[in-house]
Nucleic acid binder design. Structure first.
Lengths: 155, 155
DNA sequence: GTATCTGCAAATTTTTTGCCAGTAG
DNA sequence: CTACTGGCAAAAAATTTGCAGATAC
């Protein structure tokens, strides 16, 4: 709770200033929550969690703050076409695994080996690659257990 | 153009029947259009294109048809959190590259080498992997050309 | 002091749904 | 025949926006 060397708030303040934006309590609360969870919350979930932390914040501000964080490279927006976008506060390289049954998203450590990344750069001719995103699909252990095995056909 | 052995319609009919669904002219038109383009159209774009082909079809039906195709494994739904979902009729394994400037999506041939896929399976402990999706981000040649080089910072 | 940010409510955009008539099998 | 589909228009869900007052710097 106290101030450490380079607290979460400091990281945010620095990133915001680098992008010519101001540090506000609302943005800090959103950022703190994102950093504190390995869930991948929707804007609405962030809103519900953060409103307990900060007395007042509106959903619109949460949307704006999240967009600001993404713009500063402090968060990543994930979409799956099933309802709402999700936000990930982890900025170190990692992958995601999404359960096709319960839609939860799990982190998977690691990155592709650099030679594979080079290979991809080469294959994407005429395209200047700056990043990539890898998502596994399948079934989490919980959902896999509660299945007979017959429904697990569609990838 | 004419009917070959195993026409596009036949493929569709077969897939639909396998999933206990009926073959209809609307679904066929949507499917034909999806197969005929390497763009990655939104539902609305499919609607606009298909309504010229088939005399009457409604946007709601396009949505329903696309969802049916996805359910039969004949199309893939892609979302990027910037507006609408996009649909891809190519079902052979390939990757996508998305331009951060113009939002267009390009196909990138190939798959990950199988040892890398095994590696991913292993790393995603307790998760039954059935598939994956790899997306490159960056700038297409057209957008890269029209940039000074300074704006190309954010990945 | 001033440009930027927040909150509110209204607007937009995208997608889904209910219901009746039409049609595939 | 009968259940599944399509069309329509209305609803729902998610996200964005305009503006006035508050706030960071």
């Amino acid at each position: 709770m106290g101030q450490k060397l380079q607290s979460t708030d400091d990281v945010l303040r620095e990133a915001l200033e680098a992008n010519g934006q101001r540090f506000t309590e609302q943005r800090a609360a959103v950022f703190r929550f994102l950093m504190s969870t390995d869930k991948h919350p929707t804007a609405d979930e962030v809103f519900l969690a953060v409103r307990q932390d900060v007395s007042v914040i509106s959903l619109a501000t949460v949307y704006k703050s999240l967009e600001t964080l993404v713009g500063c490279g402090l968060a990543v927006k994930l979409t799956y076409g099933d309802g709402s976008a999700r936000y990930d506060g982890r900025t170190d390289p990692h992958h995601h695994a999404r359960c096709l049954a319960c839609s939860r998203i799990f982190d998977v450590a690691g990155t592709l080996p650099s030679d594979e990344i080079h290979e991809l750069h080469d294959r994407a001719q005429d395209f200047h690659v700056t990043g990539y995103r890898l998502e596994l699909t399948g079934y989490c252990s919980h959902c896999a257990d509660s299945m007979t095995g017959k429904e697990r056909i569609r990838a």
